[in-house]
Nucleic acid binder design. Structure first.
Lengths: 220, 220
DNA sequence: ATATCTCTGGATCAATGTTCCAGAGACAGC
DNA sequence: GCTGTCTCTGGAACATTGATCCAGAGATAT
């Protein structure tokens, strides 16, 4: 392994592949990432790619890890336990708001190191929050599931439209679709259709976290 | 359209295709369903399939709808509002416990009629529960996201192993993997690893619903 | 008998993930 | 400086999959 850089300044590497994959995923969406497209963007061939990387799933996992690792760097040590949990949850939310494709990825392999990391972070703060030992597991699982549920839903919404579509346009479309549903069968959905159009995803997400936290601390 | 049945008693139809697809999905998992496999099982060709069905996604959506429609048939009219919400949530949980593949499907297309149906059911009971109008939307979204989060996680767990694997074996494997994590970085996860092995998924799921309900009713 | 409509089966295409292999380039040893 | 070896590259080739196309079977109406 040479210490100096290789002569070619565009030398291929696993890190470069993953970074390029993230770029393609962000601009073209989940379906926009193909191995051939990745090779073309890197101006190389398939064999070169597969030398550095085991398979496509390997790249996806690494890309998800890289994006989420950055989201989880925020230091939560000097926050109150409940605020720390909110910070972790919002960190994940912001990460897949910026990279919707990780939503699908996160809900694919549950034993993924990244998922366990989030689980760990939540669990620690739950203990600091004074949640009894025998409910910490259930509480951490509930919070994690909620976070991943929102991730999946956001990702689904992002994947169902062309990448680059303006979010408010999508919401307006769904909202008007909702208000055209059957008045009897979908009375509630029709009633809240207007609210869907101008709601704040992030705030709604946080509301759910708060309800979970309130329930967990009240009943424990 | 003839009133009498066709002479061939194995006549192809959209309903038969969807039913066979469900059967294949249940036995072979999400990846086990291919259009060619479906045609082979129906002893027919591709053209015949595509005559009755628009594309594969069409079949997946119809299969998900069929399975979930059955899960949502339970009458919740004579239950207390909070029990009704629990019943709806548990109905969905049981449905994707029996058919893990709908988890991935549910988290794919958010504007799916089935998802909206669950949303509608939850929302109605929230109103009956006395939740203020301006928080009903957020509360229904939180509950829906939680339910779908668990769905996705269960589906991911089911998809990561060979179909037919015994659940307790999977949990035991993950549990032992957890207990071998780094003692410092994963203190919490290690501590609850044992609990993972013998916990009841359904009860844990219900605990999350209860916390959400407690938080929603307490703070509203 | 002919025409038409519904439905079927398989050939065929395009896209995609993956493997394989010939070979380029650099570096160590002689 | 030559050779061998190891790392790395590029693209041909293969298998699988979703989807389209088309010739034609079978029944029914005219």
């Amino acid at each position: 392994m040479p210490i100096t850089d290789r002569r070619r300044d565009d030398a291929l590497s696993r890190a470069l592949i993953v970074a390029t994959a993230i770029e393609m995923l962000d601009t073209a969406g989940e379906r926009g990432l193909t191995v051939r497209g990745l090779a073309a963007k890197l101006r190389t061939g398939l064999g070169a790619l597969y030398w550095h990387v085991r398979n496509k799933s390997d790249v996806l996992v690494a890309a998800t890890d890289a994006v989420l690792a950055e989201a989880l760097t925020a230091d939560t040590a000097d926050l109150a336990p409940d605020d720390a949990i909110r910070a972790v949850a919002l960190g994940v939310f912001d990460a897949f708001d910026a990279h919707p494709w990780i939503g699908v990825q996160l809900s694919r392999l549950s034993s993924q190191p990244t998922t366990v990391q989030i689980f760990e972070r939540i669990g620690r703060h739950l203990q600091a929050l004074g949640v009894p030992d025998d409910t910490q597991f259930d509480a951490a699982a509930a919070l994690l599931n909620y976070v991943l549920g929102v991730a999946g839903q956001n990702a689904a919404l992002a994947a169902s439209v062309e990448p680059g579509t303006v979010r408010s346009d999508v919401l307006a479309g769904v909202s008007s679709a909702w208000s055209e549903l059957d008045a009897d069968d979908y009375a509630f959905t029709r009633r809240v259709a207007a609210r869907l159009r101008d709601h704040d995803d992030r705030e709604q997400f946080l509301a759910g976290v708060n309800w979970l936290l309130a329930g967990i601390t009240a009943r424990s």
